[in-house]
């Protein structure tokens, strides 16, 4: 078996205990929070819960018996690839999650594109030309990006660009125009740490001997920066990207709510308020898989960026 295959197999097998652990912790946490899911499900539909109705609902949702039994029942189903039905809607959880995930994926990819477009030039040029106007701009962007809450930026963008200038629609999902404002809101906030990180690591790399060597052997400055410096400076950013991309794929409750984006983030938070166990568990499993896979991808990227790193 080649090394890469062994590596992938090992990482994928490690996913099993991760998923088990995550599901146990989530199940325990949900049960520690106040509120009876059966009662909440009834109240959410605008009805006053009576003891008969709660009892009937509990049976319908499979909430009888001690918590550990409920967990085992759930796990047994999951092993048979059945994530169960949402308490609230009664529809299969897998179907509900898959219905919403593409919207979140689309938003995440575009947000990431915005992050790259903002952070890469600002971070790199701020390092190459310290003290220049672009350095100042990068500093302001990093400050704003990390200090402005998403909901505020989102509403400001809606007000200025959608309500006043009518350049974009206010809410909803549709074509590119619908995507710009929510993706920028997410991407701008995300860009802040990358601007700082790229600048610092670029500055560090530019001091290294091999850069001097590259310059000494007469390489054009552009090539020195692009081929030698940037590739090395990207390493810490890629690590962070793994975590952030996972985070983006788990959806953003705030941005999805403000822009009425039918994604997975709002769906998950609503499920938490409704104590919709099966949805929360299904969501957490999906997110755990995504995080593990994204990080696996990041590890593979390291090898490309820095040949000194070995998979083993």
């Amino acid at each position: 078996m080649s090394e890469i295959k062994r590596f992938l197999l090992k990482r994928l097998l490690a996913l099993i205990p991760v998923l088990l652990g995550v599901s146990v912790v989530t199940f325990a946490l949900i049960n520690l929070t106040p509120g009876d899911p059966a009662e909440i499900a009834i109240r959410a539909s605008g009805v006053q819960p009576t003891s008969e109705a709660v009892e009937a609902m509990r049976q319908k949702l499979g909430l009888e018996g001690p918590v550990y039994r409920q967990y085992i029942r759930w796990l047994w189903k999951v092993i048979h690839l059945d994530l169960g039905q949402s308490f609230n809607s009664g529809l299969p959880v897998a179907q509900e999650l898959l219905l919403r995930f593409p919207a979140t994926l689309r938003l995440a990819l575009c947000a990431l594109a915005f992050t790259a477009v903002i952070a890469l030039p600002l971070g790199i040029f701020a390092a190459i030309y310290p003290g220049s106007p672009i350095d100042h701009i990068s500093r302001v962007c990093a400050l704003l990006g990390s200090s402005m809450p998403g909901f505020w930026l989102g509403l400001l963008l809606i007000y200025a660009l959608a309500v006043r200038l009518k350049l974009f629609p206010v809410v909803g999902m549709g074509g590119i125009k619908h995507l710009v404002l929510p993706a920028f809101t997410l991407g701008f906030g995300l860009a802040a740490p990358y601007i700082r990180l790229l600048k610092t690591s670029m500055l560090e790399v530019l001091q290294k001997d091999f850069i001097n060597t590259a310059r000494a052997k007469g390489l054009r400055e552009r090539l020195v920066i692009a081929r030698h410096a940037l590739k090395n400076a990207l390493l810490p950013a890629v690590t962070l990207l793994g975590m952030n991309f996972g985070g983006l794929l788990s959806g953003s409750f705030i941005v999805e709510t403000i822009f009425s984006w039918p994604g997975i983030g709002k769906y998950a938070v609503d499920a938490i308020f409704l104590k919709d166990y099966t949805v929360i568990q299904g969501y957490v499993l999906l997110m755990a898989v995504i995080f593990v896979l994204v990080n696996l991808l990041v590890d593979l990227c390291y090898v490309f960026l820095d040949p000194r790193i070995r998979l083993s």
Partner: peptide, 18 residues
């Protein structure tokens, strides 16, 4: 990757009508 971003960014043309 960039192509993937663009693909992500482009929606279906049919539902762009407001």
């Amino acid at each position: 990757l960039l192509a993937a971003f663009t693909a992500g960014c482009s929606g279906t043309a049919s539902d762009t009508q407001q």
